[in-house]
Each structure stands twice: as C-alpha cells, then as structure tokens.
C-alpha cells in the first residue's frame, strides 16, 4: 500500500471568519501501480486533495502515509517525497520557461542535485516517453503546439522519475486528438513502468477507458471509491453531484427502462457495441 490517507481534514484559513472546510474526513488506500481517476464538480476539493499527496499542503487534521511512513513525522524528508510523487498542475505549459525544450526538462532533475550526465539522460528518456522527437529538443518550448507544450511539461515531471504521477486535468483545452495522445501516453507509462497514476478529470468518457478505480469527490467528501462500472451505475446520484456518466451508459439504461434485456454496465463504446449486437441478434 503506497499511499494511505487516514481521516484527513483540511480547513482553509482555519480559525478566521473566512475558514472553509475544503476536505472532510478523507480515508483511502492506493496500491502501487494502480490507475486512479479522481472526479468531482468544480470546487469539490480535488485539487486540495492531491496537493496533500506530495506535502504541498499540510492537513489540518489526520495522517498520511507514503510507503508505510507517516509524512508528518518530525524527521520525514518532504523534499524526497516531492521527487517521488510528481504533480502536474493544470495548464502546466504555463510553467515552461527555458530557451529550449531540452533545457526545460533538465531543470527538474538538476534541482535534485544529480550530476549533469544523469540529468541529461533522464531528460532525454522522459521526452522520449511522452513522444517528443529528437528534432524538437533544441526548439523553443514556446514554438510548439498546445499538445506538444503540455507533453514537454509532463516530461519535466517524469524526469524526476517519480513513483507516483498525479495529473490535474491534463487534457483541458486540447483538441480530441491531442487529448487522446496525452491519455495514450499516460496509459503507456502506467503499463510499461508500473507507475501509479492519479488522474483528475471532468471527462467521464475518457476516464472510463483507463482507470482501475474511480474516486468521487462531492463538497469536500470522498463519496465513492470503486471500479468505474460500479460508480457509473449510480449515474443518477452522480448527476446530483454535478457529474454525469458516459453517454453509452445512458443508452443502455434507457433501453433497460424500455423493457429490453441488456446489461447496463457498459461504459465504453466497445462494451456497448458488443452488448447491443447481442441484443439485436437475439
């Protein structure tokens, strides 16, 4: 068990008139190598929650364990935690600043105090993982397309070789192909390196394709943690929380409501296709 949250609470501006209870009594366990999808309405506490995972925000109350160690213990090395738990913020390309793509990615590992050769090796490897070719290494990051910039920014975090990669809406504002490219790259990383992935998203169709488990946040509480199918079967509750299920889930449920014998747990086009072909051939 890689990450354990035990009754974690966070209150912004605690003790003042503006205090706001952003996350409430959150407990969960994430295993090594899992792919977790984190969904919830705007303001539900997703971003606050993930910033606890690498110690950027300290819980008002509760315990967090990483690889069995309490990260709030006195001698715990938070710096090393941050290199093990990589966090890619929303619109990470706004943080690109170097003159070339390669230099930008080297910046992260260089801050870990590694020697130059090692930094460059890691940067090269990270850029390769996100599909940035050799021809772009010397380009200015500002000349790239939106999707490319974002992949460079992700490479900057990967070059730290984290054990856990957290991404906050990595596909916002990208065109559908750019979105699929990024998600495919993340799925590839997960498969090939066994990295634990935590993906925050508003796209139910996307997350249904990739995540092992979904965490659902609502008004600061973790209200569901289960397999995607199980979560999306509660689509009516999800709607009350300002969320939704993938479109195909609605198709299957509508058919079931009309009296057809179909299983309603399809969440991807492929699953729905199989189920519907079965129905139509009966």
């Amino acid at each position: 068990m890689q990450i354990i949250f035990d009754k974690v609470n966070y209150i912004y501006s605690d003790g003042t008139a503006f205090s706001r209870h952003a996350i409430k009594d959150i407990s969960f366990t994430i295993n090594k190598g899992e792919f977790i999808g984190l969904i919830g309405h705007t303001g539900s506490g997703k971003s606050t929650l993930i910033q606890h995972m690498n110690g950027l925000i300290k819980a008002t109350d509760g315990r967090i364990y990483f690889n069995g160690q309490d990260i709030y213990e006195k001698n715990y090395n938070l710096r090393s935690l941050r290199s093990k738990v990589g966090l890619v913020f929303q619109y990470p390309e706004h943080q690109l600043f170097e003159t070339t793509v390669f230099k930008d990615v080297v910046f992260g590992p260089a801050n870990l105090g590694l020697d130059k050769l090692e930094c460059e090796l890691r940067a090269y490897e990270a850029l390769k993982m996100v599909g940035i070719g050799d021809d772009l290494l010397d380009a200015s990051p500002f000349e790239l397309s939106g999707g490319q910039k974002r992949r460079v920014a992700i490479a900057g975090v990967l070059a730290m070789r984290p054990e856990v990669l957290i991404l906050d809406e990595p596909t916002a504002g990208l065109d559908p192909r750019g979105r699929d490219d990024i998600l495919e790259k993340i799925a590839y990383l997960h498969r090939e390196s066994g990295m634990t992935i935590i993906l925050v998203t508003h796209s139910m169709e996307d997350i249904a394709n990739y995540a092992d488990r979904l965490f659902v946040m609502n008004r600061g509480e973790l209200v569901m943690q289960d397999k995607a199918k199980a979560v999306f079967s509660h689509y009516k509750e999800l709607e009350k929380m300002h969320l939704a299920a993938p479109q195909v889930t609605y198709v299957m449920n509508a058919l079931r409501d009309q009296g057809f014998q179909v299983s309603t747990d399809a969440t991807t086009v492929e699953e729905a296709r199989k189920e519907l072909l079965g129905l139509l051939q009966r």
């Binding site: 309405h41 705007t42 916002a172 504002g173 508003h202 709607e239 300002h242 969320l243 939704a244």
Partner: peptide
C-alpha cells in the same frame, strides 16, 4: 471561444 473548456459537466 471555448467557453466550457475549464468547466465540469454540469457547468458545461
């Protein structure tokens, strides 16, 4: 111009 890119499903 992409008025819903940053919104959750309900906001969209």
């Amino acid at each position: 111009d992409e008025p819903t890119a940053m919104l959750d499903p309900n906001g969209r």
